[in-house]
Design a protein around this nucleic acid. Structure first.
Length: 600
RNA sequence: GGGGUGGUAGUUCAGCUGGUUAGAACGCCGGCCUGUCACGUCGGAGGUCGCGGGUUCGAGUCCCGUCCACCCCGCCA
């Protein structure tokens, strides 16, 4: 039977005791992490949010405390009344922050007994993810997750302090809002009052924050939950948190100048000084040089276009491909990587036989390897290729002796994607990535829209409220795909941690964009009519950004999944293993909503 | 929707070409032990081999289906 707290008040956290506390009477509350029963004396490691400390129960100090310690088991919740004592030299534990002291127990109260947990409450457990998620409250008790959740708190507080200092108001926006046709699939909430009508949970507060600019709020931010009903990944959950920001009268530089110091502040939390300004790269360059719109700059190995060289080389390896418009691009694998011929052949198969790029041209001929040696070049010459061009190519890609040059030939987009994925795989495989580095990058000048071959229409790359670059606006009618946007993404270690744009503040321009996106007048009016109308009442130029708080926290805490920085995350099938959601509901509930459930 | 990896004790795993009573470590329970901190030591309990079907004299093992977790592609303005 558990005992009550009575008149006990905690005086210290377990993890904060030190030599300065020696001699003090203390009251600790915490969980029994381990018990070491030596018969005459019992040691209990007591754990709380701040750490561990050793409690000693000896009969000559207190018979009752010793007896109580005897029946303590793992994860019992205890109140310990005692005195802090210095440990004698040979009993100091250098592996424990509080290892120079211990608490001599005068009284131990068992506030709560505990069942044996399904896994050990400690770091470095090997337990499968489903068991951890089912017992999430126990998983969260582990020191590592405690640190992650604390860091997340510190980050959100730092963001709030900073944004407040910069003059931004934190303003809440609706969770029950309106479905929009563009973008991700919405989570829908049926209306009981209006049968057949639905609210949508926000994919982001995009329209509301723009309306706040129309309202003259000038500077807005919000740490806000967003919902997207799409399939999950290690860095994607169906509900996630954004630091949402919008301001009036900004240039792109204004956003940059606001956000870079924010990251500098946040990184100080983990003792890291970030170099500013962050580098910038156009979308076009990112795609060509890194095969990605979010290049990981923690290692080099850029991609080099060698279309002209391959054309001039005189090899008949890719008959007609380049002439038909394909590009040739090269990736240099350093000789020091020691990559094997077998591995290269495997890469070749994986790349072009569909594992990496499903729709790449399925032809092994599209990948060509050249080793940077005199013999290899001489061999090329024997096949009738130009030795001079081959040497020029090696020089252009920066290959040094014995490096292996991989050259892919394909249509530009598929090639960029394939080499981009390959670069990341090789970077990991050859351990080129500095695990302690934090490399920021602004990616700018995104295309405003791209042609969706399936839907046979243009779709926004960012979202339909993004303004075109002034110098490209004249192309909107003639060549929409060529128009670049005042959009920017913030990339950190190859992960998109933020994205935003300067918005359209002119209702005529906004209407034109909707038209280009093949939204009929009726549909645009139905979906965004209130918004277009609002733009007509004096809209300041405005723009903003949204930062992915979960991903930021994941990177700062060194985790590889955002599940480890979210208190109660969902599985890859969007289920909550602990609460058991989603779940069926009572027939009356469905009936009230005017909904008929079709069961498979 | 597609591809990959995995599912055997509370946990992590082993279990061969199908063959007696399915093992190990840690954890758990009990005894002993006054300086342990991976305590030690002696003893013990603990299994719907994810689920369903099939082949077979016999299935943890082979076949088919299905469910769950994780990673990736599609998808994610």
């Amino acid at each position: 039977m558990a005992e009550t707290l009575g008149d006990l008040t905690r005086t210290h956290y377990c993890g904060q005791l030190g030599e300065g506390d020696v001699g003090k009477a203390v009251v600790l509350m915490g969980w029994a992490a381990t018990r070491r029963d030596l018969g005459g004396v019992v040691f209990v490691d007591l754990r709380d949010r701040e750490g561990l400390c050793q409690v000693v129960a000896r009969p000559e100090v207190s018979k009752d405390a010793h007896a109580a310690a005897d029946r303590v088991r793992g994860e019992y919740v205890l109140a310990v009344v005692g005195e802090v004592a210095a440990r004698s030299g040979e009993t100091v534990n250098p592996n424990l922050a509080t290892g120079k002291v211990e608490v001599l127990a005068r009284e131990i109260r068992v506030l709560s007994e505990a069942r044996t947990p399904p896994f050990a409450i400690e770091d470095d457990i090997q337990t499968s993810e489903d068991i951890r998620l089912k017992y999430r409250y126990l998983d969260l008790r582990r020191p590592k997750l405690q640190r992650n959740i604390r860091l997340r708190h510190q980050i959100t507080m730092e963001v709030r302090r900073y944004m407040d200092e910069q003059g931004f108001y934190e303003i809440e926006t609706p969770m029950l809002t309106k479905s929009t046709p563009e973008g991700a699939r919405d989570y829908l909430v049926p209306s009981r009052v209006h049968h057949g009508h639905f609210y949508a949970l926000p994919q982001s507060p995009q329209i509301f924050k723009q309306l706040l600019m129309v309202s003259g709020m000038d500077k807005y931010f919000q740490i806000v939950r967003c919902f997207r009903d799409e399939d999950l990944r290690a860095d994607r959950q169906p509900e996630f948190t954004q630091v949402d920001v919008e301001m009036s009268f900004p240039r792109v530089q204004s956003i940059v100048d606001l956000i870079e110091p924010l990251f500098a502040r946040v990184f100080r939390l983990i003792g890291v000084d970030v170099a500013r300004p962050f580098p910038r790269m156009s979308y076009a360059e990112a795609m060509e040089r890194y095969g990605s719109d979010k290049p990981d700059l923690r290692f080099g190995m850029p991609i080099t276009d060698v279309t002209d060289e391959m054309k001039a080389l005189g090899l008949d390896t890719f008959p007609g491909l380049i002439e038909a418009g394909a590009r040739a691009r090269a990736l240099v694998i350093p000789a020091s990587g020691g990559i094997s011929g077998t591995r290269l052949r495997k890469i070749n198969e994986e790349l072009w036989l569909g594992r990496i790029v499903p729709d790449a041209h399925a032809s092994k001929r599209n990948l060509f390897t050249l080793k940077a040696t005199d013999e290899a070049v001489a061999n090329l010459a024997k096949k009738g290729a130009s030795e001079t061009v081959a040497r020029a190519l090696l020089a252009k890609v920066g290959a040094r002796k014995d490096d292996v040059v991989l050259i892919g030939v394909d249509e530009a987009d598929a090639l960029a994607m394939a080499l981009g994925i390959l670069r990341l795989e090789l970077g990991k495989e050859l351990q080129l990535v500095d695990p302690k580095a934090f490399r920021f990058l602004w990616v700018t000048d995104f295309p405003l829209m791209e042609y969706d071959k399936g839907a046979k229409r243009y779709v926004s790359l960012h979202h339909p409220f993004t303004a075109p670059l002034d110098e490209d606006a004249h192309l909107l009618e003639s060549d929409p795909g060529a128009v670049r946007a005042k959009a920017y993404d913030l990339v950190l270690n190859g992960s998109e941690v933020g994205g935003g744009s300067i918005r359209i503040h002119d209702s005529a321009m906004q209407a034109q964009i909707f038209k280009l996106l093949s939204l009929s007048d009726d549909e645009a009016k139905e979906r965004f009519g209130f918004f277009i109308e609002a733009l007509q009442y004096g809209t300041p130029p405005h723009g903003g950004i949204a930062l992915g708080l979960d991903r930021m926290t994941m990177i700062l805490s060194g985790e590889s999944s955002i599940r480890d920085v979210i208190a109660f995350p969902k599985t890859a099938s969007a289920a909550d293993m602990m609460a058991g959601s989603p779940s069926p509901v009572r027939d009356e509930q469905v009936k009230d909503l005017g909904i008929v459930v079709v069961r498979k």
